[in-house]
Each structure stands twice: as structure tokens, then as C-alpha cells.
Design a protein around this nucleic acid. Structure first.
Lengths: 241, 241
DNA sequence: TGCTATAACTTATATATACAGGTACAGAAC
DNA sequence: GTTCTGTACCTGTATATATAAGTTATAGCA
């Protein structure tokens, strides 16, 4: 259940519990979940804490409240993968059937004009360049090229870049959390280097996704170009008009 | 200030006050707003109530918190073109610098498996097939292939398909208005026919956008495949995390 | 000068409590 | 039978309080 010695705050632990209960279908759609008082008794928390957790899940759209009646499980969203809530990159990472990452390059380089303009820095400023390839099985599906300003993340560690998401590492080490994303998509032919890395022919269609991540204070802390093999990847969007 | 006799709850009143303070620029971007304790003193509310209000504004992205330092005003949001509010097609049509449309085909055909499954009808059912090419100047940029079930739009007129948007015509004639959209994007090589129509080489990268439009009552009234020339088109998204 | 300890602030987490307002239902009153 | 009323339970609003943890400036010591 809940572990008060766990450094993870109780509300976050409860959030996970409720979230999995919803996801696993333990609580039926449009049926009431246990009341705030019941939950607070069950888990030994105050009602306020329970309520705070439920409020978060309500904001996310997983639950809805009806005064005097209770709290209910929402209809499953059409779009869990709505781009309004998740970057295209996260979307793809969730699709993942046993996705494996290989780190190809990790180095500090001076930013060229293109990179500098994307990151809002001066050309020549040092950035950390990270190149990775994603595989499903032994087939490469995408090539990731990330640029992170050294001025914002000076001592970025190479460790775990194959096992952890870059944004997770950046948030943990430097506190930068994505508040807004600017993405662009286009179709480009593979050049020689890309073709070799992705094991396809030169000129083959790639889906290029550019991703600029901003934190709440407006700092641009990551610029990533992802090249997807056109034959392997299809992006999907769902939204209301 | 706050009116305790107002039926509007105090937290909602405070929310409005803070929101206008942010919007009017009374608090500068990336500067700290008064601390939770200050606000609670100023407005005669408990810190918890103030905190609840700030939490909402943080969730909305208007403010961000830094533990130990304070609560700050976020950079103003950029996203007008959030895909949550506008389909990719509309987005591209807005980009338009003197876009011209040429109608290539307009005919009734039986739906194949692919089309039928996208439209939720039976293979063999008749659909209206519309093929158009978009140009900027005399350069083709995209090839549009639309399928509309005859069962929903029996007497669709050919008129004005070069001058008006298809969805506008469908809404006027049959009352179907897009309530939700399902879109997918991938990168594909041009086949011989597409290459000729778009005046490019065979195998050249195209950005394929598939668009399924649903009305509020759940009717799928349009399925469109758009092929964009990879060298001419770049899609852009902006959104909050 | 340079370092550390500390005080004073901030947000983060968690509890206990109170009452208001809406819903549902059983049972009394009509 | 129908309507009213009370009760029990739900979420909604609001307060007071306590402790933890992160940040910053400063006073004071080496």
C-alpha cells in the first residue's frame, strides 16, 4: 500500500495507486470510486490529502466529480495520445515494443547558426551534442540528435542515456521541466550518414521531427531532431474540433 | 478586494484577481509574485486557500513555482496554432500564400477495404471520390484524395470545389460539421502517378496525412489522404506540456 | 579573505477540523 | 398513494497548524 518511509510523497504514491486502479479497469467506467472519506480511512491519510490527489486526476480527465453523489471514472479518452498533452516523441516512446537505445555520440561542440537560432543562443556557444539510435529488436527506427546548451546544463552526465529519457535526466540534474514544446514535422530524404545509421538506402523518405523544449521560465534547454524511418513510423493524432 | 457575501467562492474571486494581475502585466514575467504568506495576509485568507488558487494557475501554466525561492510569472504562451484547436489541414491552409486548387477527378466509386474501414462502411459501398492538387504559383505542393460516403452526402455537387473548402461545402449542403478528427502522419516515397502529378521524381519523400472527420453524432463523413511534397511543406505544432 | 553556521525567508507535504450544499432514501404525515 | 422531512452520506469551501526541504543573505569565525 503506502510507505511512509518512501521518499516519494504520500500523495504521489496514492496517485499512482488510483491511476493503476483506473487503468486496470478495477473501477468501471462511469461508476463511482470509493468516497474521499473511505479512501482516507483505507490508506490512513487525511481527507484533504486524498482530495488533492483526486483533484489532480480530475484535472487530467481520468475522473469526474458530482457533488452529493461521488467521484466517477471518466469514459476512456479517445486520445490518450493527444498532442495537447504529450509531445510526439513521448507518443512514440509509448508505442514502444521493447525499444532499445544506443548512444552513438556524446560530445561538446560549438553551436552552428541553425542550432543557435533554435536554442536562442549565440553561434559558437558550446552545446552538448547527443546522438542516439532507437531500435526495436535489431532494426533501427529512429535517429535522435539532441543539442543542450552548456550554459544551462554544464555538467550533464553521459550515464544512463541508453536507459533513461534525456528529459528525465535533465530535469533531475538541472530542474528544467518541459512547460511548452514547439515541434515541426517534415519529410526528408536520408543522406549518406543517416542512411548508414538507419540501415536504409540513401534518399529513402524519413520523417523529421524537430523538438524545442522550453521550461516555465522561458529557457530553451533542449533542441532535438529526430529522424524516423518512414516505413516504420506513423504518427497519430486525435482531437476535438 | 474580496467579498465574503458574494456567492462566488473566495478562491474563485482570488483566482480572478491574480489572473488579471498577470494579464495586465502588473507582475513582470519571470519575476516573483507575493509569497503565499503575503497573499494570505493581504486578502485575509488562509495560506491553504491561497495555495490552492496558485496551484490552479500553475497547472494552467500562468505561474511556476521554485521551492525555496517563490512563485513566478511564466513566459506568455505562444501557441495559437495548437493542434488541439485546429486540424493539420486547416493549419496548412492558413499558411497559404495564394494557394490555388485544381480539381483532377470527381467521381463515384465503390469503396475498397482500406477506404471502407476508414469510413466505417461496408466495402463496395459507393463513395464520392475527389482528387485535387494544390499549387503555390505553378508549383504543386500537395495532392488531396477525399472519400465521402454517398449514404451521408448523396447529392454532393462538383461546383466550387476549386474555390471552396470541401468541409465548408459538406457542412452547407448536409450539415455535417467536424466534431472530432483523427489524423495520422507518415513519410512515404512517391509512386509513379503521384510523382507525375506533383512534378517530382519517383521515390521522392512525401508527407502523407490521413484525416478522418467525425461529426458530433459519430458519423464519419470524410476520409482524406493528403500527400505533401517533402521539400515544400513543414508542419508546425505548439503546445503546453 | 574565505569559509561556515545560522536565521529568515520561500515552497512542499500532511493533518484535523468545520460547516455548507447537493443527493438519495427511508419513513412519517397528509 | 403522494408529499414532506429527516438522516446519512457525498463533494465543496475554508481555516489553522505543523513540519520538511530548498534558497539566500549575513554575521561571525578561522
Amino acid at each position: 500500500m503506502l510507505d511512509r518511509n518512501n521518499p516519494k510523497p504520500l500523495y504521489a504514491q496514492l496517485e499512482d495507486l488510483l491511476r493503476t486502479s483506473i487503468m486496470n479497469g478495477e473501477w468501471q467506467v462511469n461508476h463511482a470510486i470509493p468516497s474521499e472519506n473511505e479512501l482516507s480511512k483505507t490508506y490512513g491519510l487525511s481527507r484533504m490529502t486524498v482530495r488533492a490527489v483526486i483533484t489532480m486526476l480530475v484535472k487530467e480527465g481520468l475522473l469526474y466529480r458530482v457533488q452529493g453523489k461521488g467521484t466517477f471514472v471518466s469514459e476512456p479518452k479517445i486520445s490518450t495520445r493527444s498532442p495537447a498533452y504529450m509531445g510526439v516523441r513521448e507518443q512514440l516512446e509509448q508505442m514502444g515494443y521493447e525499444i532499445r537505445t544506443r548512444l552513438v555520440k556524446f560530445e561538446k561542440i560549438p553551436a552552428n547558426n541553425n542550432i543557435a537560432s533554435a536554442l536562442g543562443i549565440t553561434p559558437g556557444d558550446t552545446v552538448t551534442y547527443i546522438e542516439r539510435i532507437r531500435y526495436t529488436g535489431d532494426q533501427p527506427i529512429s535517429l535522435h540528435r539532441s543539442y543542450i546548451p552548456v550554459s544551462l546544463c554544464p555538467s550533464l552526465e553521459e550515464a544512463d542515456l541508453e536507459g533513461e529519457q534525456l528529459c528525465v535526466i535533465v530535469e533531475r540534474q538541472f530542474g528544467y521541466k518541459t512547460a511548452s514544446v514547439s515541434e515541426s514535422l517534415e519529410s526528408v530524404p536520408a543522406n549518406a550518414e543517416e542512411a548508414e545509421l538507419l540501415q536504409i538506402d540513401r534518399g529513402y523518405p524519413l520523417l523529421m521531427l524537430e523538438d524545442v523544449n522550453k521550461s516555465a521560465d522561458g529557457s530553451i534547454f533542449e533542441y532535438t531532431k529526430v529522424l524516423f524511418r518512414g516505413d516504420k513510423v506513423k504518427l497519430h493524432f486525435e482531437y476535438e474540433a
